[in-house]
Nucleic acid binder design. Sequence first.
DNA 1: GCATATATTAATAAGATTATTAAATAATAA
DNA 2: TTATTATTTAATAATCTTATTAATATATGC
Lengths: 206, 206
Amino acid sequence: MKQNPDTTTEQLILETAENLFLEKGFALTSTTEIARIAGCNQALVHYYFRTKDRLFDAVFEKNAGLFISAFLQGVEENISFEEKVRKKVEIQYDILKANPKMPFLFFNELNTNPKRLNLLKEKIGNLTKSFFLQMENELRVEIEKGTIRPMTAMNLMLTILSLNLVLFLASPVLKVITDMTDTEFQSLIESRKRENVTVILKSLRP
Amino acid sequence: MKQNPDTTTEQLILETAENLFLEKGFALTSTTEIARIAGCNQALVHYYFRTKDRLFDAVFEKNAGLFISAFLQGVEENISFEEKVRKKVEIQYDILKANPKMPFLFFNELNTNPKRLNLLKEKIGNLTKSFFLQMENELRVEIEKGTIRPMTAMNLMLTILSLNLVLFLASPVLKVITDMTDTEFQSLIESRKRENVTVILKSLRP
DNA sequence: GCATATATTAATAAGATTATTAAATAATAA
DNA sequence: TTATTATTTAATAATCTTATTAATATATGC
């Protein structure tokens, strides 16, 4: 059963589960299907992860971590504010580009399963608070210098997140209604990063 | 069983189904639960709509229509380009504000169910094409006049959609991780419309 | 090799879900 | 009233799901 000796069956199951969860979400994925695709007995899925819920948690935790890091990504370097913003946007965009299905899973499960919302809060509750405070401070300095217009951290954060997220959330819809080929869509993804940076930097101008 | 004589049982079932589908999506909503909440026998749900799929289609079609209208909304009036953009953004935002759960349903089902993607395409395939062409034309005129920077219709449309959508898609997450009260969140929704218009208009500047 | 632990499978219990059917009830028209 | 149609219900078939269990195969240490 083990095709690749480097991968344990447990890992194989986890990876298969991740792919399916990312593809169709929690509810539409069954442990039976996970086992079928992983090429093992269905009981084995439960042997390693006990319940479907725990298996999902393992997948979700990893992806939530990625998402949060994409979101809270800090830039320490000694560069101008404009360059800091640019870097922040680009790093977030790159993480999303490398994990294009992750936003779907994230929003889908947090919208449908309140339990997971609470888990998320426990995990990052105060992380965000300090993140916002720091951002507020940086913004205040720039606003007082007159280099950017008055603007709250919440609004800037929402703008960045919005622009970066939607392309990936909407990609299946976009591809179909605009009749784009995969390569056309790939080049849209490439060019969109620059556009997002432009929009955000222009939106900051006084 | 009929509490309100103005509403037929069929309508009641449809409305109940809509609420539940919007809340939890297709997969997590059962016809049994729809019947329980509508206060009728489960077989009745099937009597009126035959299958769960058809019932969902009825709900989805209505909501997809709303979404598309939010998206393709045209502004005919004889006003400046800047005012046209402002109106477009505001109208779309208002439709989303009036139907805050609709984007979740829309993206969730189109991401998980390819069948529905094809239905959507059939319905609006060429509508979008002419919409994009018109937008390209309007943009070209302004770009040649030098009133806005070079910019594709796709990018402008994506920017508008991104900014307007994400607040509603992310509302459950946002509320929880920022500890906002409902009234605080409500006022964020109010203020965000102005901010989106500002960002978009600034992003158009040469 | 043998004993022990680990991994894997087949079988199945328990419960939920969609959909159908036949019977009962309510509404309507003649 | 009575016949006919529309609405509603109870019962249930068929299928699928998660999860458990006991039995089998495989690996590991001694």
